[in-house]
Amino acid sequence: MSGLFPGFLILSAAMFAIGAAGVLVRRNPIVVFMCIELMLNSANLALVTYARYTHTMAGQVFALIVIAVAASEVVVGLALITGVYRSGRRLDLDELSEMSE
């Protein structure tokens, strides 16, 4: 069973790297938010993996908290995106980079 331990961690690292690359590469803010979700998910995977293999509970508790944080982050982020959309701008991060009202 513990032979799978590096597999979980490498999958988690790969997902985090893909999410980080997506945040840097994509210009659509909705996709960027989804990439952030991907990164949070990979962190969850690492937390639960360590909780399982060190026989502790902290990882699972904090995975739960990370899920709550991700949910609230999505709510605020999507509210921001709808606000930008309503102000009549195109949803393109390169054009919104100055972040001025």
């Binding site: 590096p6 961690l9 490498i10 690292a13 790297a17 893909i18 980080a20 690359a21 840097l24």
Partner: peptide
């Protein structure tokens, strides 16, 4: 982005 992602994954894999 792809090169960065692969490099990061290899780094973490090596550290693991």
């Amino acid at each position: 982005g792809g090169v960065g992602a692969v490099a990061f994954t290899l780094l973490i894999g090596r550290l693991t």
